[in-house]
Design a protein around this nucleic acid. Sequence first.
RNA 1: UGGGAGAUCGGCUAACGGUAGGCCAGCAGCCUCUGGAGCUGCCUGUGGGGGUUCGAAUCCUCCUCUCCCAGCCA
Length: 568
Amino acid sequence: MEEARDFIRQIIDEDIKRGHYGGHVHTRFPPEPNAYLHIGHAKSVLLNYGIAREYGGKFNLRFDDTNPQKESPEFVEAIKEDVRWLGADWEDRELYASDYFEQLYSWAEDLISKGKAYVCDLSPEEISEYRGKPIRDGERIVTPPGVNSPYRDRSAEENLELFHRMRGGEFADGTKTLRAKIDMAHPNLNMRDPVMYRIVHATHHRTGDAWCIYPTYDWAHGQSDAIEGITHSICTLEFENHRPLYDWFLEQLGVHHPRQIEFSRLNLTHMVMSKRLLLRLIREGYVARWDDPRLPTLTAMRRRGYTPEAIADFTRRVGVSKSESVVEYALLEHCVRQDLNLRTPRRMAVLDPLRVVLANYPEGEVEELDAVNNPEDPTAGTRKVPFSRELYIEREDFLEEPPKKFFRLAPGREVRLRYAYFITCHEVVKDDSGRVVELRCTYDPATRGGDAPDGRKVKATLHWVSAAHAVGADVRLYDHLFAAENPTDVEEGQDWTANVNPESLTVLSDCALEPSLAEVEPGQRFQFERKGYFCVDPGSRPGSPVFNRTATLRDTWKKIQSRSQAPS
RNA sequence: UGGGAGAUCGGCUAACGGUAGGCCAGCAGCCUCUGGAGCUGCCUGUGGGGGUUCGAAUCCUCCUCUCCCAGCCA
């Protein structure tokens, strides 16, 4: 069965049919190394890499490092790790716009010589004014044509000399720019003599102090694509306005001209996705770091337990289009559950322990019971789980006064302990404050393994851990970083950070795990039965494991509860 | 205002002049030693008005709404 092709692939199909670019396809992912990658970038990486692979083409990783004040090797390394993790292979093409600085400079000289660029002494504020600001004209707002810079008509010789002196370091930051000479009355503001070079005395993470003038993104990006022989320059919607400018540069230079195709960026409910906003969350301490598992950064999602396969499945399902959209977080969760369901071993872990004593079970006796590692994967085999007189069950699996539809343990009620026995609760022990501290139960020896020979049924099966064998652990539960679907939608005078969910992180430190979980390695994933998917944190240590919850299991009881509690 | 772009079930996305389909979510049921997973069924949609056509989500036209640009950020 053939899958529907997105509009980008349709365009490429057409290009190939018409023999454009010699039938070749060459894509690239062009991040600026000034932040960590997030899942929106993953969509772009996978799109570009996927297209290259499908068409038998090539895929470049190119760092658009034209702003030394914001970029650093730390980000370069982090980005490489994330792209690699996603499975995108750039082979030996780890490239940098900064590698093209000399070529870009020489092309700029060409444009100057042809009278298509000039050195301008206007200040940033003046440039903005000359460009033509929107003016209120009574009811209406009018965008007037721009005004030519007084420096626009310098001779090519003078421009060349000034440009050389700019490179030579003779001028202070911000005092001069090189601008393309296009059209100050152009309806597209990007065409009103855009800046190509600015003076910045800053050390670049790769070129060091070799330069004190740096190309703007607009001047560097298209030409970098051209140099690399990119055929399809896929980018996000906000660059649609710039395409005429990129076309103009390429045409003036007479070089290879990629086809630029814009698609809408990924947005998620309950999440912010811009670098600027993510940076604020970190700087202001709403989250710990770039890899805080509540963030949509790839490093955070990896730490949380997401798999690259789940992310790839997700990006495939959301599709590619030009309409701006917000994808429900639930789809992401669905993808990771579906992946993890098939691949993760099951374990029993009691996150909020309640002691259970089996009055009729021999003291001191321990049985090793067989437990299935993964019902979805017969090859995963079984393991032994110790059972004894004193156990822990989940506190929320018992209610003294069970409401309708609550099938779990309650006074007088019989339930099954998974892979073990049927037990019946006879007595509830409370402390002085009335808190339930222990349950006195009996077990039915005939139900060993979990089946009753007389065929009687129970409505619930609980997970449990033998108290004497339990391994203590920290478990971190995560909820939406923002309770609101759209975090930046705030009332007048409110800052969006007010929407940060104060309960997005819950740290549990008294969890009781089955003993097979004593020795785990960071990054290992498990399904804790009935609770969710969990991943061993990088900070986990032998003997005191730390788990991050990747996602909960779908929980019908929770749903029933919230339905009955929901405000009408 | 000018320029650029977009509007299809609750969400995302197909359909390229010929039965508006899929996935997620939701709902109902079946099944179950995870209230998991799985299975079955249901649900709802072409922004509005005109026009062309045997036939329009698709073509034309007018309108409405939303987003992007006016950095020496990318």
